[in-house]
Computed example of a mutant assay.
Amino acid sequence: MNPLLGSQFPTLALREPLPLTRHPAAVYLRSLSPGSRPTMQQALDTIASKLTNGECDAMTLNWAALDYQHTAAVQAALLETLSPASVKKMIAGLRRVLKEATRLKLMDSETYTEAIDLPKIKDSCKLKGRALTGVELARVMADCAADPTLQGVRDAALIAILRGGGLRRAEVVKLELKDFNLETGALQVRQGKGGKDRMAYLPEGAIPYLENWLLHRGNQPGPLLCPIYKSGRIAFRHMTPQAVLLIVQKRAAQAGVEQFSPHDFRRTFCSDLLDAGVDIVTVQKLAGHSSPITTAKYDRRGEETKRKAVQQLKF
């Protein structure tokens, strides 16, 4: 285990605060979508803390003072405790902050080029998450149907969107009533990952779950899905992504299904569409991925699908 990085370097704290318009981390964070900002803020705080033995966070670190020895050391330290995928995202944020420092004339181009020239991070061979089977999905939906409270109706609608539309949980909680078309099953996803808008669609079998929820919710403008008080009264405000996670965990436990995450519904969504013969570019657009390469990583169809695929070959 490496010692704390802060003990290796002189102080990297800013001598005096920078205006937000001149602060490279602040400028970078403002360029992100509201949904992505908290995650990257936390990542930059972690990097700053490791570099200074807890002395600094993202706003008090002097990012322009970093060079290759700092960036290489912090990447190595992060890899000791975090997954390669997580470290890749954090280092990508670090690179963007240093790029802003260069644009703001706080760091020279040569130092920037050297600082971002880091060893390649090797991905873990094991895929994250899993796809749910048809039996598992049926059991989870049956658990919602057996719930006599309004939470059962709401949770069935939530799962119908996660599984049927492939939305991220952060996208689901931002949906407004006006974003759903009951006749076509269309969902207008606003400010998804990367700040992009897209149109998603629910399969016909998922629409009745939304229709049932709307009979209870009514047509009052506001969030499509809402928290529900213990009394059964609907709170017309947005749910949180954390609430979605807890609901999914509760339903899995009650249905006697192996635990899964809300994101596993996206993996199931992509895998099932690919298994149905939908081309990967269309699946990419429906999932809101920036590249088909990302979509391919969501494929959890397993060996049986590959075995069946080669049976199509003539011999």
Rank of each mutant, 00 (worst) to 15 (best):
L104W: 04
T294L: 14
K314N: 13
E55H: 10
L98N: 01
P17W: 09
A157M: 06
A76K: 11
D264G: 06
L5G: 05
E211W: 12
L177P: 01
E114Y: 07
M40F: 10
R233S: 08
D108S: 12
G205D: 13
Y68Q: 13
P208I: 13
L5T: 03
H70P: 03
A76Q: 14
F260P: 00
A142K: 12
A131Y: 00
S231F: 07
E211V: 11
L245K: 13
D57Q: 12
L98V: 07
N212W: 06
R198K: 04
K308R: 15
I228H: 03
R95M: 05
K122E: 12
D155E: 06
P3M: 09
S261I: 03
A43W: 00
A85W: 09
L224P: 00
G256T: 09
P84E: 13
L214C: 08
A131Q: 12
A138D: 13
L214A: 02
E136R: 07
S36H: 11
I247Y: 01
F315R: 13
P148F: 05
P148M: 11
N212A: 14
L224A: 06
C144H: 02
L214G: 00
P241E: 06
G256K: 10
N219F: 09
I47C: 02
N2C: 09
L182S: 12
R130V: 03
I47V: 15
V248Q: 03
S86Y: 08
Q249M: 12
P292I: 07
A43G: 10
V189W: 00
E204I: 08
V310G: 03
K88H: 15
G288F: 02
L20E: 15
E211D: 13
I234N: 02
T46L: 15
T133P: 03
L274S: 01
Q242T: 11
P203E: 09
Q284N: 14
D264A: 06
N62Q: 13
V257D: 05
A253Q: 15
A253N: 11
Y28C: 06
S31H: 06
